[in-house]
Design a binder for these strands. Structure first.
Lengths: 120, 120
DNA sequence: TCTACGTATGAATAATTGTTCATATGTTTA
DNA sequence: TAAACATATGAACAATTATTCATACGTAGA
């Protein structure tokens, strides 16, 4: 995260104006974190499965063609970012989407991909 | 990406129904790719700066406290995912957001973070 | 209480990736 | 044409991370 003083176009007035408008580094970091969590194929498969129904770990593993362990690890990540929640029923743990945000994010990204191949 | 046949709860009817409803692995992969691109602090800073104004590489480097090289590399990634576009004016290259999708994704993720700290 | 089952977790490995450094490309001006 | 500038790019290194394997934890039934 160094800074160069050569070879740059710098309009400090403009730059400082933008810096003030931008969210804090902490907030930007956390926003990036959410996207990072969504930015994995396995976790995206989990999300898209949970989009259809609440599911237990074993079912998710089967649907995503992964192992129980891998899924359990990833569900932990999703849980920490408050993207999924769970409820226990005896020894079975049912997972579901925690938020409407997840659904919207998923749909917009899907649109972005699908439209990207049509034009341009 | 192996598959376990022990220790799982499997309702094949339910599972197959969900599998059919889910997008193809290819599409899910590409959706995850978009999120992966957004899932980096530096790139998120770039996005949030471009949200305010079109900017040249040097200005972005200054605003994000990074080197020209690092920013140039990251702009390349953002360009490939069609999240930013550019126009040249002499030797200066101006970058801007390519899509409305980016803006919406950014705003929803921001909401998710901000609301996540209020309740629950 | 023993066994079977569903899930969670820690450590290790392999693969991915962001930054740095050096340098190349292309453009403007003297 | 030479020099200065803005940006791009390739290679190398360091750091992060997803999966695997083994095993632990908790619950239900015999």
């Amino acid at each position: 995260m160094k800074r160069e003083n050569d070879n740059e176009v710098v309009d400090f007035v403009k730059i400082n104006k933008i810096k003030k408008l931008m969210p804090s580094d902490d907030l930007l970091f956390e926003i990036a974190e959410v996207f990072k969590v969504l930015g994995d194929t396995t976790r995206m498969k989990i999300i898209s499965a949970l989009l259809e129904s609440e599911l237990c770990v074993g079912d998710i593993a089967e649907i995503t063609n992964s192992t129980q362990s891998a899924i359990s690890h990833q569900l932990r990540v999703l849980k920490q970012s408050k993207l999924v929640k769970f409820r226990k029923e005896g020894k079975i743990v049912y997972y579901s989407l925690d938020d409407d945000h997840v659904i919207t994010l998923y749909e917009i990204a899907k649109k972005h991909i699908e439209e990207g191949y049509v034009h341009k």
